[in-house]
């Protein structure tokens, strides 16, 4: 597998791979995202307890799951970059961070908008909302650390270390917040803690998770390309790429 993967550590190859993959990802992302959302909004049955407000789940749960997934992916990229000195991995990390931050924001926002009709307030210090908020802070920390360095090579390394520190902390934060929450306010919120989901609700949920993942992947691919070009502005292959684009 290494033999197969290794050429893509070279930025030019990675760029071309991205170029080839992008249309596939964009189409499949649009299709699955639209199917998931429309199915969830219009065709899935309403929850017997929460009525139609429950439909927020079709954006809230995917974004919550993928906000954590994106952070892990970012930390894995940082790890690969730090251990094997792969520059493309740092670029991937940097390209992923803002996407993760936006998706975390979406999870927080939809959580609040779901909480208002259900709990009566926009914000409660619910364990999952709180750890999601901390996750957002971790993302912003990595992004602002990267932005503070002039030398982007150094910046990538520094932000990578911070991303790994964050990922080591993430489970600790999650469990500590959960424990803190049960300590401070009884089990009042757990009343809709995962009742086994009916299949006609589960399928649209799974499809919207897949859809959001593909949307993020498509945006990530384009951002990675941008990052590669930005770092290698004066390399001959970028020059050729741009001249080729001009002729079209």
């Amino acid at each position: 597998m290494w033999k197969w993967l290794h050429p893509y550590a070279k930025t030019q190859n990675a760029y071309q791979l991205c170029e080839r993959l992008l249309p596939w990802f964009v189409t499949s992302a649009l299709i699955s995202f639209v199917i998931g959302i429309v199915w969830g909004l219009a065709f899935a049955p309403a929850d017997y307890q929460q009525g139609d407000s429950f439909r927020i789940i079709y954006i809230h749960v995917p974004s919550a799951i993928l906000s954590m997934g994106a952070y892990s992916a970012m930390a894995i990229a940082a790890f690969v970059g730090l251990v094997w000195q792969v520059r493309t991995a740092f670029m991937a990390m940097v390209a992923l961070a803002p996407i993760g931050a936006v998706v975390t924001f979406i999870a927080l926002f939809t959580g609040a908008a779901w909480g208002k009709p259900m709990w009566g307030t926009w914000w409660v210090w619910d364990a999952r909302l709180t750890s999601e908020l901390i996750l957002l802070f971790l993302y912003l920390g990595v992004i602002s650390l990267y932005a503070s360095f002039e030398d982007k090579h150094q910046a990538g390394k520094a932000a990578g270390v911070m991303a790994i520190v964050g990922v080591v902390n993430l489970p600790i934060i999650h469990f500590s917040v959960e424990w803190w929450n049960t300590l401070h306010q009884g089990a009042s919120i757990t009343k809709f803690d995962k009742p086994s989901v009916a299949p006609d609700m589960l399928w649209p949920l799974l499809i919207s998770i897949l859809g959001l993942a593909l949307v993020m992947a498509a945006i990530f691919i384009r951002r990675l390309q941008n990052e590669i070009v930005r770092r290698e502005l004066n390399r001959p292959w970028v020059q050729e790429l741009v001249s080729a684009a001009k002729e079209k």
């Binding site: 009525g51 139609d52 407000s53 927020i56 936006v102 979406i106 908008a113 779901w114 009709p117």
Partner: peptide, 19 residues
């Protein structure tokens, strides 16, 4: 949306806008 129009469409609107 069964009376929850504001919350549901607000969530989806903001999410889609952000993406």
């Amino acid at each position: 949306m069964g009376g929850y129009a504001f919350y549901v469409w607000l969530s989806f609107g903001v999410s889609l806008l952000a993406l």
